[in-house]
Design a protein around this nucleic acid. Structure first.
Length: 378
RNA sequence: CGGUAAGUUGAACAAUUGGUUGGUUCGCCAGACUGUAAAUCUGGUCUCUUCGGAGCUUGGAGGUUCGAAUCCUUCCUUGCCGA
């Protein structure tokens, strides 16, 4: 195993734990946010800048890197670390999320967390633009529309060439509107694929299996048991987390209680600030989320006083940093009025400054949670 | 002073040369976004409204007509040409 997970302290008041994951590219303190670098870049920032946001590990994407530039290019460049000049640990997602986002997610115009008011959407049998078979998924290239097949074998072989420290099994991320029957059938495939992934992998990269099962307790538990009985180095928890966010912690507890304590748990794609304490208390060690970077490019800053939409004209009058308590380079050197001006002028630097601040803020937020666990507060 | 072209909106343009437009784009305002098809998408943007609708609009005034942003008269404003 090329990673080494150590738990330093377990909370007495929740399932939270503090620890670290050792990898060839350094140590990650957990719990830890994993910023999303889909295309081998945190959009708008250089690797050096990302380092200054106190980010410890990034996650990139197999589907997108396979499409462009292609894993051969990465292989010839000595792997993704060297390619993107990121010297710290990396993860790659398997492409399993694209089975959802380019499939039912696109058809039904839903995200992986459903809002209460969207419940009417009916689950279709098959997604329109991709074809899911027992061996894998036929995608349509986002670049030229040509057919593109990705299954467990393909995903692992590509991830080996990309060369991240931690890689994920190829799964089907199910839609939040998926019914029981669909979710159960899908789960069977995800489980079969998990075994194929383990057999395929030849490198010493750490491979995480992914638990699915949607909103259904028995399926979640069945999945957690099945996946944890396989020889994975850690576990991803994927898919949806309830029609209603309030159930998230409960749903996580179904899964976590079935997972071995000594292996790391990664929650896939969850991480609003409001969610963080909940998921960490439920026993999650790492989690990735596009929110800090994605919202930044839309003009939203996360601060200790809540979200600020820097597109709004009122901020032209605010001659103060985004967050008075923040010590990031952006808050030390730039004012809301300037960032607002940049956003309204469509200047890319506005997005850069917000991306930097948000990542710094999120990482700082998680660091405080780590300290709270160490101090017995959480 | 004479000639000529034009005047719609927050801005720039449109509307079968008489057929009943509030149309497009931008701007502005408001939402949305959780393993990134995402520097994106959706909605609003004349007035009033009990959200079902109702009313009023094409520089001003008048006219022709069943009907005018479109045609006519006149005034105002602006651009261009000429003294």
């Amino acid at each position: 195993m090329s990673i080494n997970f150590k738990i330093l302290k377990k909370s007495k008041v929740s399932s939270a734990r503090v620890g670290f994951i050792e990898t060839e590219h350094g140590v990650i303190e957990t719990p830890c946010l994993v910023p999303v670098a889909t295309q081998g870049v945190i959009k708008t920032l250089t690797a050096e800048e990302v380092l200054q946001t106190n980010s410890q590990i990034l996650i990139s994407n197999t589907f997108h890197l396979h499409e462009r530039p292609g894993e051969k290019v990465l292989e010839k460049n000595g792997g993704l670390h060297k390619f993107m000049n990121w010297k710290k640990p990396l993860m790659t997602d398997s492409g399993g999320f694209q089975v959802f986002s380019l499939g039912f997610g696109k058809d039904q115009k839903v995200g992986k967390v459903l809002k209460n008011n969207n419940e009417k959407i009916k689950q279709a049998e098959k997604p329109k633009e991709i074809k899911i078979t027992n061996d894998g998924v036929f995608f349509k290239s986002l670049i030229n529309g040509s057919e593109l097949f990705l299954g467990p074998k393909e995903s692992i072989k590509i991830q080996e060439k990309i060369g991240a420290d931690i890689i994920f099994a190829f799964d089907e991320c199910t839609s939040p509107v998926a019914n029981y029957e669909y979710t159960k059938r899908s789960l069977l495939k995800t489980h079969q694929w998990a075994e194929v992934c383990l057999k395929t992998k030849k490198t010493k990269q750490a491979l995480y299996g992914i638990v699915q099962g949607g909103k259904y307790k028995d399926l979640r538990q069945e999945s957690a048991k099945f996946i944890s009985n396989l020889n994975f180095d850690g576990f991803g928890i994927g898919g949806e987390f309830g029609d209603d966010k309030s159930k998230m912690a409960e749903m996580l507890s179904w899964v976590v209680s079935e997972l071995p304590e000594k292996k790391p748990r990664h929650l896939l794609g969850i991480g609003y600030l409001d969610d963080m304490k909940k998921i960490i208390k439920a026993g999650v060690d790492t989690f990735d989320c596009t929110v800090p970077t994605h919202y930044a490019r839309r003009g939203v800053a996360f601060t200790s006083l809540g979200r600020l939409d820097l597109n709004k004209a009122i901020f032209l009058k605010k001659n103060e940093p985004l967050d008075k308590g923040c010590v990031c380079n952006v808050c030390l050197n730039y004012k809301k009025s300037y960032i607002c001006h940049l956003m309204r002028s469509r200047e890319i630097t506005g997005m850069r400054l917000l991306t930097f601040h948000n990542l710094h803020f999120f990482n700082n937020f998680v660091e405080k949670i780590r300290n709270d666990i160490k101090n017995g507060k959480i």
